[in-house]
Design a protein around this nucleic acid. Structure first.
Length: 419
RNA sequence: GUGAGUGUAGCCCAGAGGCCUAAGGCGCCAGGUUGUGGCCCUGGAUACCGAGGGUUCGAAUCCCUCCACUCACCCCA
């Protein structure tokens, strides 16, 4: 074989498509219910956009981003996440002049140079939503509910909602200081990585999976205990709203996310079982991101889910999705004049909105009907010399094996009535 | 980036130094009716045994390198 799909990419074959269409359909329906509008952005952007938004120090930007120069030496990157592009477009098109908040959704191809494994690819697909221009925790609650609604409409139930607040630029520095203070004396018990994290990125200390570090993280100061008044009130209000909506959540003090732009609310949906730490989706508030990209202070919140992971979970939970529609009519023909007649008849039927598959080639009638059967056709129309001579066609019901000879003109009405 | 496992036809796989000019099942193609499917029967095509190198009289089977896949770490969707 000369070529294979690049590592970490996958072809989505016809047999898989039903899952994807199903997910898209449910996603669009939920967005409609909550008043979100679709927006599509480029697959690649100025690399600086991601460095600035996702963060220079993050793994995503540091070691996972596909960066390249085009022929004019522009430094570009395949998008490693969806939010940055949406915010860029929001600013670029003056959407801050629209009634706020602006609610947008997208389906995007996401690229990260990672080592592929279950539910993890170098190119994957996300469905995401962003609500830009409103700070109220009501919106946080609504976004979370919307995500849940989406999962529920898909039939997914085996997952938990984890919630945390990581503060804002006012209270977070103090908290990080507290974390560093707490961790410094424990340095000997920490893993290599965590020792550097104390200085570089103390938040990340919390989600280290190494046993020694886990123990330390248990007792570590909690971000939610060190929120400023504004963040505290926001978080408390959100919890009240969630409870009012009957949404079950767990506060996970160690939930921090790998993108620097998050402020206050962060959340993640974790499957109860299956594979590694394959989050179904997640999101959070990013009140400073628009400013970071050159806009005025604009609070916002969003969430995103991985399509591949949803497919994985649908399969794991044995959820059936609507399958491929069977062709209504298979047209078999024998002989040259029959071929012409078949093409014309098929054309007429399609004109009448009836799906038709025509057997092209010179296979035996037996072979043609075999194919009709394996395609699951409901009817077969047979045209051969006999039919041509009489100016008729044979209509065979593949379910009952009943046949009748009819005029070509009648097909439309007979078959149309079956729909 | 790290670690473990795997790599035989479109798919699932047997095969553990010569009997492999590689088996079986699914699928595909053809035939069993002179113009008729699904079941059944018969026949057929499709594999330079992941790639390259080595050991050997002899390798799909042993060794090395590389590549890919899978799983896990990491990180996240």
């Amino acid at each position: 074989m000369l070529f294979k799909a690049p590592r970490g990419t996958a072809d989505i074959l016809p047999d898989e498509q039903a899952y994807w269409r199903y997910i898209e359909e449910k996603a669009v329906a939920v967005c409609k219910l909550y008043g979100y509008q679709r927006m599509d952005t480029p697959t690649f952007e100025d690399a600086g956009l991601f460095a600035r938004s996702v963060g220079e120090g993050t793994d995503i930007v540091n070691k996972e981003m596909y960066v390249f120069k085009d022929r004019s030496d522009n430094e570009l990157a395949l998008q490693p996440e969806g939010t940055a592009s949406i915010c860029r477009a929001y600013l670029e098109h003056g959407m801050d002049n629209l009634p706020q908040p602006v609610k947008l959704y997208y389906f995007a191809d996401i690229f990260r140079y990672e080592r592929p494994q279950a539910g993890r690819y170098r190119q994957h697909h996300q469905f995401g939503c962003e609500a830009i221009g409103e700070a109220s925790p009501m919106l946080d609650a609504e976004v979370i509910q919307m995500a849940l609604w989406f999962f529920k409409s898909l039939g997914l139930t085996q997952f938990t909602l984890q919630l945390n607040s990581i503060g804002c630029k006012q209270c977070r520095p103090d908290y990080l200081l507290k974390l560093a203070e707490y961790y410094t004396p424990l340095t000997p018990s920490l893993c290599e990585d965590c020792r550097t994290r104390i200085v570089k990125n103390p938040l990340r200390l919390l989600d280290c999976k190494k046993p020694g570090c886990q123990a330390a993280a248990e007792e570590a100061p909690r971000s939610s205990d060190h929120l400023c008044e504004g963040c505290h009130d926001h978080f408390e209000a959100l919890k009240i709203y969630l409870e009012a909506l009957g949404i079950v959540y767990g506060v996970n003090h160690r939930l921090v996310r790998g993108l620097d732009y998050y402020t206050r609310t962060v959340f993640e949906f974790q499957p109860l079982e299956g594979g590694s730490q394959s989050a179904l989706g997640g999101g959070g508030r990013y009140d400073d991101l628009i400013t970071e990209l050159g806009g005025k202070q604009t609070p916002a919140i969003g969430f995103a889910t991985g399509m591949e992971r949803i497919v994985l979970n649908l399969k794991n939970q044995g959820i059936e999705v609507p399958g491929q529609v069977k062709p209504a009519v298979f047209m078999a023909c024998m002989g040259n004049s029959a071929k012409i007649e078949a093409l014309k008849t098929a054309s007429d039927l399609r004109e009448a909105g009836i799906p038709v598959i025509v057997a092209a080639g010179d296979r035996s009638l037996k072979a043609q009907l075999r194919q009709a059967n394996s395609l699951g056709a409901i009817y077969a129309v047979i045209i051969g010399d006999d039919e041509i001579n009489e100016g008729m066609v044979t209509l065979r019901n593949m379910g009952t094996s009943e046949q009748q000879v009819v005029e070509p003109e009648e097909l439309k009405t007979i078959l149309g009535a079956q729909e």
